[in-house]
Each structure stands twice: as structure tokens, then as C-alpha cells.
Amino acid sequence: MSELVTGEAVALELRPAKLPSRAMAVLLDLAAAVTAYVIVTIALVAATSSLDDAAQTALSITAFLLVLVGGPIAVETLSHGRSLGKLACGLRVVRDDGGPIRFRHALVRGLIGVIEILMTFGAGACIASLVSARGRRIGDVFAGTLVVRERVPAAPAVFVPPPPPWLAGRFAELDLSAVPDGLWLAVRQYLTRMGQLDARVRHSMAERLASDVAARTGTPPPYGVPAPAYLAAVLHERQAREARRAFGHGVPGGVVPAGAPGPGMAGGPGMAGPAPVTTPPTQLPSAAPVPPSSLTAPVSPPAASPAAPPAGGPPEAAREASSGGGPGTGFVPPA
């Protein structure tokens, strides 16, 4: 890795391109440029066959400069350091501070590349790359540029080791509100990388981080607990609290049991069910005199057949029942 310092004093870790990948990218660029130069030369010869030899020589030199020199310069300027070969090999030209290149950087690299690549068949560029600590050729040195790799292997997933089982839940009452986020980040980075550290460095860093955490919480670490185990248990407790805060609290695990009534339902947690509605009995109005007009309104006969008059009843009652009238119906038979 190569550490570059930007204008904001930020250190960047970039991976310089090695000689094989750079040589492959240069070969691809040269193949594309030579192909374009041959096509342009054939077109110029066919178009300028009537001109004299001096004019044809001048056009050939112009085509050489435009295609083999100006073409790579224009491509690197417009693509910010990614030519066709570099794009295929996953490379990029950047400044010494890690920023994108501009026209002057591409111009210096292209002009010096004519000498160290085209005229020496790449021998000068290979020797300079082997001598340089970051694999730079002469054009990169004069232009202040560097060829780096853009496609790097993905870093493995970060794994934080869990605390020992006998420390689970031991720091549930510990006040962690005063511990800053920067200290938590340092603890997490230490736990993920402590297997890569030297034994003495690992022990000293664990003791220092444990003392910092204990000073922020106001509670010293338990006697006999190793510093790495103490840090793992405290970090695990903080993560558990964050999970409870994010996914719910008040219910163990933040999950409502299946089948339990939810809010707004009868018997739900924290809410009373709706009380049954009781309607008071309707009081019937007192009897009022029937107006004379309602006495003449016809009443439709019932759907069922009229009941037979009781046997042995008075003839007047039987006659009133057969005529469809009756006492209290409001119907007066005709005279």
C-alpha cells in the first residue's frame, strides 16, 4: 500500500499498479492507437494521391502526432486518467495527492511517453518502473502522477467476538451514556483486529481501552476479568440496548405474542374493551283519542287465514270475526 496525503492532510491508502498490469494496459492502448493510425493513413493516402511527396509527408507526420500522441492525451484528459487499456485492467492515473489528473498532467505523460515507450519500445518505461518504489515511469515523475489500482479485493466481513458466557448480562445495570462514540469505535476496531496484533501491543491496548471505558462509566472492571473480555461484554451490552431501543421495549424481546389482542381491541394491552351499549326501554306514549279520519282508512287483511271463531260463541262475535272487523281494529263495517 502507498500512503498519499491530500491537501486537507488526509492520508489515503492506495495500491500502486504493478509492472505486469501496466504493461498489459500499455499494449492495449498501443494496439488501439496503431489500428486507428493505420486506418487514418490509408484514408489519407487514398485522398491525397494527387499531391506531391512533401505534402504527403507533412500529412503523415500530422496524422502520427494527432493519433499516436494527441489521441492518448485527449483520452486521458477526458476520462480523468482511464484509457481503454487502463479501464480493461482496472487501473487509473491520479495525481500525487490522489486527485484526478488534468490536461497538463496528461500532456507531460504523453510527450515523455513518446520517448520512453515508442522510441525505446518500452524499455525505458520498464526500467524506470522497476527502480521506482511506487512503480512510476519517467513521465509520471515529471507530471507528478501515479498509476493505481481501482479494483481491489473486497475486505472480509468484520466479526466482533462475543463475550464469554459467564459475563452475559453482568453489566446490565452499567451506565453507558457517558461513553463517546469515538471510544466505542476504538473498542470495536480493537476487538476485530486484536488477533493481528502482537501480544504485548494487544495487552497494552486492551488495558488502556478498558481503563478509558471504566473512567467514563464510573465503575471499575470486575476483579479477575481480562480486559479483552471486559471490553467484549460491555460492547455486547451496548449493542443489546441499541437493539431494544430500535426494535421495541416493554415486551420481552420487543415482540408481542401471537394471538394476543392488539391495541384498540377488547382486552388489549393498556386499553379497556368497549362497554356494552344499554338502551333504556322506550316509554310508550299515553293513549290519545283517535281522529275521525283514521276510522275510515282501510286496513289490509293479514297474510294468514283468519282464525275460526270459537265454537259456542255469541253470534255477534262470530259475525264480527267473519266480516274482518273486530274490537279495537278501528274498522267500522258498513251499516
Rank of each mutant, 00 (worst) to 15 (best):
Ala157Asn: 02
Pro309His: 03
Leu68Ala: 11
Pro309Ser: 11
Pro302Thr: 12
Arg238Asn: 08
Ala260Ile: 05
Ala88Phe: 15
Gly224Tyr: 09
Asp52Val: 05
Gly135Glu: 09
Arg134Pro: 01
Val187Cys: 15
Gln196His: 12
Pro257His: 11
Gly330Pro: 01
Val38Asp: 04
Asp181Gly: 12
Leu231Ile: 04
Leu84Ile: 15
Met265Pro: 00
Pro291Arg: 01
Thr217Glu: 06
Gly99Leu: 07
Val5Leu: 14
Met194Pro: 00
Ser322Trp: 10
Val225Gly: 03
Pro263Lys: 06
Val93Ser: 06
Ser177Cys: 05
Pro180Tyr: 06
Arg134Lys: 11
Ala168Arg: 14
Pro220Val: 12
Pro285Asp: 08
Cys89Thr: 15
Val40Cys: 11
Ile42Asn: 14
Pro165Leu: 08
Ser293Cys: 02
Arg202Pro: 01
Ala307Cys: 05
Pro100Asp: 06
Ala288Ile: 04
Arg188Gly: 07
Ala206Glu: 03
Gly248Ser: 02
Ala215Tyr: 02
Val234Trp: 09
Ala215Asn: 04
Gly98Pro: 00
Val10Gln: 13
Glu207Trp: 00
Tyr37Asn: 12
Ala233Trp: 03
Val251Trp: 07
Glu320Trp: 08
Pro280Val: 02
Arg104Asn: 04
Arg200Glu: 10
Asp198Arg: 04
Pro310Glu: 11
Leu30Cys: 06
Phe171Tyr: 15
Trp166Asn: 14
Pro220His: 13
Ala154Asn: 12
Gly71Trp: 05
Thr329Ile: 07
Arg200Gly: 07
Ala106Leu: 06
Gly313Ile: 03
Phe247Tyr: 09
Gly195Asp: 09
Gly182Tyr: 07
Pro280Ala: 09
Ala307Val: 10
Gly182Ile: 11
Val256Thr: 11
Glu8Thr: 13
Leu183Asn: 08
Ala88Lys: 06
Arg95Pro: 01
Thr6Arg: 00
Ala288Asn: 07
Val152Pro: 00
Ser300Met: 11
Gly254Pro: 02
Phe64Cys: 12
Pro334Ser: 14
Leu78Ala: 12
Val34Arg: 07
His236Val: 02
Ala157Glu: 13
Tyr37Cys: 04
Thr192Pro: 00
Thr48Leu: 14
Ala106Ser: 15
Leu91Asp: 01
Gly122Ser: 06
Val158Asp: 01
Ala133Asn: 05
Ala227Phe: 01
Phe64Lys: 05
Ser132Pro: 02
Ala199His: 06
Leu209Ser: 01
Ala58Val: 10
Ala266Cys: 08
Ala128His: 10
Gly169Trp: 08
Pro20Glu: 10
Tyr190Asn: 06
Ala287His: 03
Arg319His: 08
Ala55Met: 12
Thr217Cys: 11
Leu59Gly: 12
Pro314Ser: 13
Cys89Met: 15
Ala215Leu: 09
Asp212Gly: 07
Pro164Leu: 15
Ser177Ile: 11
Ile112Gly: 01
Ala321Gly: 04
Pro165Val: 03
Ala233Asn: 08
Pro285Tyr: 00
Pro291Asn: 08
Ala186Pro: 00
Ala311Glu: 07
Leu231Thr: 01
Gln56Glu: 10
Glu320Asp: 14
Gly139Asn: 05
Asp96Ile: 05
Ala186Cys: 06
Ala106Tyr: 03
Met119Thr: 05
Gly85Asn: 03
Pro315Leu: 09
